[in-house]
Amino acid sequence: MLVLRAAAPSPFARKVRIAAAVLELDDRIEISAADTGDPDDLLRKQNPLGKVPALILESGEVLYDSAVIVEYLDALAGGGQIIPADPATRFRSLTQQALADGIMDAAVLLRYESLWREPDERSEKWIVYQGDKISRALAAFEAAPPEELSDIGTIALACALGYLDLRFEGAWRADHPRLVAWLDLFSDATPSFEATRFRG
């Protein structure tokens, strides 16, 4: 049995869980809750960065981060399933994943800024810097919403938008109607998107 160290609110862990479900591998993965803030959690030994997700293989080897894990899962499922084999399609999908992961990275950093710093210690310059990354990435996706609904680029995008809904009250929706419509299509086509939604 594979073991996925994950935190329920993490959009990166959600990406792996959705990928596993799309690949029909979720019954081969045990989800093990991890606390990234707890120095006694074994996560810091499993992944020296102390970050989720981390996938523990049956051999004991540990894979991280989410992009590596989903590539492993795709290979385990036979390859070319959520990461296309055709080079043109493959690199478009991987680039979309990188852009969506960038949204998640910036959004998580914004979350940490408000969670870990007192109001008078927060950097407005840093907040604007991260927010601008998100704005530019959303504008790029809004201009050309993905046509696919089940590759790694679109799974990552759905998780990024889901995280913005979770942590920033869906403020992105007002200015991105095409992405809103796209996310509705993705959600309808991908039951695991709703099943992995964090409610806390």
Rank of each mutant, 00 (worst) to 15 (best):
P119G: 13
W116N: 07
L99F: 14
W126H: 11
D74F: 08
G170E: 06
D35F: 09
E148S: 15
Q130G: 02
D35Y: 09
W116S: 09
N47H: 13
E124H: 10
R117L: 15
K15G: 00
G200C: 01
S187L: 03
P119E: 14
L2N: 04
L115Q: 12
Y64P: 00
Y72D: 08
V70T: 07
R122F: 13
D35E: 12
E148W: 01
R178P: 05
T36I: 14
S32Q: 13
L149R: 12
V16T: 04
W116G: 01
I83N: 06
A77I: 13
R178G: 02
I18E: 00
A107Y: 08
I69P: 10
P145K: 04
R28S: 03
Y64E: 06
W116F: 15
P177K: 13
A195F: 05
P145F: 09
V3Y: 00
V68A: 12
K15Y: 01
P177W: 07
D74Q: 08
A7R: 04
M1L: 07
G162N: 06
A137Q: 11
G102E: 02
I103Q: 08
G78P: 05
L183E: 11
L73K: 02
V3M: 05
A21I: 00
T196G: 00
A98G: 12
A195M: 05
D35R: 10
M1H: 04
I134P: 01
F198W: 09
E24T: 10
A85T: 15
Y163T: 10
D38K: 03
F12W: 03
I83P: 14
D38Q: 03
W116H: 12
L55C: 09
T154W: 10
P9G: 11
